[in-house]
Design a protein around this nucleic acid. Structure first.
Lengths: 328, 328
DNA sequence: CTGTTAGCGCGTTCAA
DNA sequence: TTGAACGCGCTAACAG
């Protein structure tokens, strides 16, 4: 920086003004000289030093529970795009669903002076999250954290589940099984399960049960399929991972996909069209969700201190062969 | 830091020694007092400031061409795990296959004083990469960059292609079509195509052609399938994206998966077992590749200045229904 | 409009 | 073994 200043015959402060937001304060002549000196020397301001001084690092942190989950990737991509558009950079930390790693990453992000945090994990370290939330804005994605009063962006789970049941019922399915990953305190999973149960109550034509993907999972599916005849059977998978496990199980059981049983999945993955007659899906607007998460952060960074907001996005139904209706 | 020092009744320098690598220089008594003060105050050293002073930020950068590609994700996961194990953090930048974004991200990473860089892109900004390489170690993953003399970690492409051809030939396929994403200067794609062509030359029993996934892709596949009978036909997809496109095309054409035509794919994705009779795959050891990439960096950071190394990992064949042999 | 001064939080000389 | 002083690269406050 000193080199640039000397070469342009000005002081460091002027150079600082040039690369910062005070460029208007400079005379055209000086600005031109600085610009040239910067170009000639290939000077790049050191973001670390800027961050150190101003407290503004232009860094956003994101805590992700499982980076191999396509949903997380999609949201992250949305966040990253939004960040870049506004001059921020994203530091992504993957916890691999491990509480200890979550703790370490939180410490790390703080040590790097991020300005805001996007969280998509179980949030098993509420104390640290709370503490962090004192210092910076925080947005939860997809999953609530108990007694953490922050913005929340995600899917409108009740509406999505209703949409699923409407569709399945209308297509002639009567005996439903909700397949979910172990609920394990994950708010979005809880909401889906609860709404499923509640909504089934309201629909006299339907019968519904819930099963978690776990050890004897294929056997549970088999039991369901062999169960007493209440009407055409269909599976409703609460997310992409459950859909994968379910489809695997159905294949193991030698099912004809999808004549024997209907299937509707939350999340739309690129391979759904390829399996059997194609898997119907409720797609989440992941890019929008990611962009909104960043948007919340940005509003807070710009001083908005209103009450915590909750943004629920609607799912979109994509019909494929797996809900074409029971084959008689 | 000053607070900690005062509370422990020592100077900032001692605290600095405690949190740094000079802890041995401190007397037990002082170390204990500092430790306690840190715990009581919940003190966290500011990594920005440390980086500013020492030039060591403990940050590794990774440039990824397409974060939605499962291969990239898997490698990134391997890198991240290795990083964390050694006290480094990873900053991932996704270029979305866009040259301009690649340039911006390179500037960004430099501005944040990363200590090393892992690159998995086309590297269309060789000048900047070269410049960066003067300042820090650089590892290429999967893709070479012209005249950039750095470590390279990836798949042993010739061996993998040979393994594929051996397998297909042994299973009775004779008429092969290699499906690749547009080659577009990507070294790994070039290597696969070239070895395919060369290897076909050497095998009188086989015939081979190459097609890129693009506009009239399904039509190209159709032409291949309808072509003169040279023997049982099989498709060899050069990566996961090609496999997805190919399977889509086969479905559109109403093929019976996979009685009409064999299919072998490079990369092993979680949904391969679910499509038709299951897609056979050559799995890449992505975790190892990622870990090795970081390992190269670490060696360089520790002073190794030997000649650039190339690490080629072998693929692993996973047989499923799609190469069970031609059905007569 | 511009330059001077004084730190941001830390690591690293030096002496002691 | 410890502490005082200086500076990393930059920005903010003030003075001109």
């Amino acid at each position: 920086m000193l080199d640039v200043a000397e070469r342009a015959g000005v002081s460091k402060a002027s150079v600082s003004r040039f690369i910062g937001e005070d460029r208007d304060l400079l005379s055209d002549e000086i600005a031109r000289r600085i610009e040239q000196a910067i170009a000639e020397l290939g000077y790049r301001p050191n973001q670390m030093a800027r961050g150190l001084k101003r407290g503004r690092t232009r860094l956003i942190g994101m805590l992700v529970a499982d980076i191999r989950n396509p949903y997380s990737i999609a949201v992250m991509h949305g966040v990253e795009t939004a960040c870049r558009r506004h001059g921020y950079s994203l530091v992504v930390c993957n916890t691999d669903r491990d509480d200890e790693q979550e703790r370490q990453h939180l410490a790390l992000l703080r040590a790097y002076n991020i300005e805001g945090l996007i969280v998509n994990t179980l949030g098993h370290h509420r104390d640290e999250l709370l503490e962090l939330h004192q210092e910076m804005p925080l947005v939860l994605v997809d999953r609530k954290v108990d007694r953490l009063d922050s913005d929340l962006v995600g899917l409108d789970n009740p509406a999505a589940v209703d949409m699923a049941l409407d569709h399945l019922e209308q297509r002639g399915y009567r005996d439903l099984l909700l397949v979910t990953e172990p609920v394990d305190g994950t708010s979005s999973r809880i909401e889906r399960v609860e709404r499923f149960n509640a909504s089934i109550e309201q629909r006299p034509a339907l019968r519904g049960a819930v099963v978690e993907t776990s050890d004897r999972f294929a056997a549970r599916i088999e039991t369901f399929l062999a169960g007493p005849d209440y009407g055409p059977k269909a599976l409703f998978c609460a997310n992409g991972v459950a859909a994968l496990a379910t489809t695997q199980a159905l294949r193991e059981l030698g099912c004809n996909l999808f004549d024997d049983v209907g299937l509707l999945a939350l999340d739309d993955l690129d391979w759904y069209p390829l399996v059997g007659s194609g898997i119907s899906a409720l797609a989440q607007p992941t890019t929008e969700i990611g962009a909104s998460a960043f948007d919340c952060l940005l509003k807070r960074l710009r001083g908005d201190s209103g009450p915590a907001r909750t943004l629920d996005f609607p799912a979109r139904l994509i019909e494929r062969g797996s809900t074409r209706g029971p084959q008689r």
